[in-house]
Design a protein around this nucleic acid. Structure first.
Length: 511
RNA sequence: CGGAGUGUAGCUCAGCCUGGUAGAGCACUGUCUUCGGGAGGCAGGGGCCGCAGGUUCGAAUCCUGCCACUCCGACCA
């Protein structure tokens, strides 16, 4: 069996249709907005004056090929909505182009993963997509991997492959440059495109052949140290998913030949999920929130691990009905479906042994390093978030991953007063540092509303003659549908909290 | 890889059974009327009917082969 990230994230839907669960958005920003002081990093880190003006934030200049009708091939809701919202285009079975809107979301998710990995102490690298076959012969996996591995030959007839995962390569990198206990602990990660030649790709980006994935690898001198690295990644994942506005529950996973309880899959609850899940309903409410984490504190990280793994939460594979009933009071027992969006794994010396990745201990003994690997399905998350957060009109993006924070709908394009008011709102929101999509097309109101709903922009400012007569515009939440009139001059103040929330958890790191 | 389908305009599809030189809606262009939830009229543009053979006076239509895509299964585990 495969215990490796390369074997993760297959997807099989259970049912079609309605939305599942996403974390509720943070509080509606309208209340108290005018009196609430600006807080957080955003106010200082994004000087408005330094913002260039990308012209593509006006819809007439953007590339947003939305479809009114649903393409025939899309079976599940996230696939349908990604096609309709002009996020992706299929180029071959399981292979997609990311169009501007989809690319924006993908980059946002990727950025959050980068920030949280680095916050937790992992170091970014980038390994190639193409690998030599010899490396895989060394680990013995070249023949094991089968037809899922895309094998190619270069002009000199050398055997190469498009990487389905990178354990071999990262282990070689570590082995080459590290030899002492002083060189550990180390945690390296990369976000790279991978290819698995699935027999039957389906469900859009949820189970493509080419997919973007974060893989982190930890190197430690012994098991205890490796378990700490594992706990660090678990906490980092909790932060990562919370920032994306989704609830991904760590569930005990199969550990294969290594044994122990150190593999967890993170599942987003959604009715269309591929995995059967059983869990203590109380865990859904748990939040790491703004808890200060000392990433070197083994005790604290162990406590976080214990806190999140104590409640019963398992997939169908590891489910134990008797234990479930014993551990969880009946009213909190929940069974449903989930989409796997990450997996963390401690695998000891499985690769360091055959590949000879050792360090010398203070006592002069050469020992193989203890490793773990930690995957996040970056491109898959785009689909998973949509599965967990949509309605009959389209996508409902959590603020943190939304392609645009605010959309402006001009109800009477070409009308001097409406145009001027839109420009004023547009300028004010951009000035804050928010990313704004201004629908300046000469379209009817209904078409503009439908587009904004479909692409899931979390906040919409509606500007029309009716409101302007009273000097107000309308601010509407995509998620709740709740609206409120805002004096034109106050729009920036009212929207400021959005930026605070979005930038709130953003770490001071660069790639 | 087994089974079942589908390839016709940018998208959703009809036409194929029963061969006679290609259609609708949406989208697009122009125009008029509309204008707070995907409006309506008029006038236009757009297709080597997946590819290659074959049958026929004549093929989108019938036959053969190939290719691509989709669905079910197996696979992922």
């Amino acid at each position: 069996m495969s215990c490796l990230p390369g074997g993760l994230f297959t997807f099989r839907p259970h049912s079609r249709g309605a939305s599942g669960s996403a974390c509720p958005d943070p509080a509606f920003p309208l209340r108290h907005a005018l009196t609430r002081p600006r807080t957080g990093a955003a106010a200082t880190r994004r000087p408005a004056a330094a913002q260039p003006e990308p012209s593509h934030m006006r819809l007439t200049r953007y590339f947003l090929p939305v479809l009114k009708e649903t393409p025939a091939e899309a079976q599940i809701v996230s696939h349908r909505l990604m096609l309709r919202a002009g996020m992706i285009r299929q180029e071959s079975a399981g292979i997609y182009s990311w169009l501007p809107l989809g690319y924006r979301v993908l980059r946002r998710i990727e950025q959050i993963v980068h920030e949280e990995q680095q916050r937790a102490g992992a170091i970014p690298v980038l390994m190639p997509t193409i690998q030599p076959a010899d490396l895989w012969r060394k680990s013995g996996r070249y023949d094991d991997y089968g037809k899922e591995m895309l094998r190619i030959r270069d002009r000199h007839d050398r055997e190469m492959l498009y990487g389905p995962t990178n354990e071999e390569m990262i282990t070689e990198i570590f082995r080459t440059f590290s030899g002492s206990y002083r060189d550990v602990p180390k945690m390296l990660y990369h976000i790279q495109w991978k290819f698995r030649d699935e027999i039957r790709p389906r469900f859009g980006v949820m189970r493509g052949r080419e997919f973007l994935m974060k893989d982190a690898y930890s190197f430690d001198v012994d098991r205890d140290a490796a378990i700490h690295s594992y706990n660090v990644q678990l906490a980092a994942y909790l932060r990562t998913y919370e920032r994306m506005g989704i609830s991904a529950i760590p569930m005990r996973a199969e550990t294969g030949p290594i044994g122990g309880d150190h593999s967890h899959e993170f599942l987003v609850l959604a009715e269309t999920g591929e995995s059967e899940v059983h869990y203590d309903g109380a865990i859904v409410q748990k939040r790491l929130g703004e808890r200060a984490v000392d990433w070197d504190d083994r005790v604290q990280l162990q406590e976080i691990f214990d806190e999140w793994t104590a409640p019963y939460a398992r997939t169908g594979e590891t489910h134990d009905a008797a234990k479930f009933e014993e551990m969880v009071p009946e009213e909190r027992r929940v069974s449903g479906r989930g989409i796997e969006v990450g997996q963390i794994f401690y695998f000891g010396t499985k690769y360091s042994d055959p590949l000879g990745a050792t360090v010398t201990t203070p006592e002069g003994e050469r020992v193989p390093v203890h490793m773990g690997s930690y995957g996040v399905g970056v491109s898959r998350l785009v689909g998973a978030i949509i599965e967990a957060s949509h309605d009959e009109n389209g996508i409902i993006w959590p603020e943190s991953v939304a392609p645009f924070h605010v959309g402006i709908v001009n109800l009477k394009q070409g009308d001097g007063e409406a145009d001027a008011a839109c420009e004023q709102v547009y300028g004010a929101l951009k000035g804050l540092g928010l990313e704004v999509l201004y629908d300046d097309r000469d379209e009817r109101a209904g078409a503009k509303f439908a587009t904004m709903d479909l692409i899931g922009v979390p906040w919409r400012v509606t500007v029309g003659p009716r409101g302007l007569k009273n000097g107000v515009v309308e601010l509407t939440s995509r998620k709740t549908g709740e609206s409120r009139e805002v004096p034109l001059a106050d729009i920036a103040g009212v929207c400021a909290p959005i930026l605070d929330r979005v930038a709130n958890a953003s770490a001071d790191v660069t790639i």
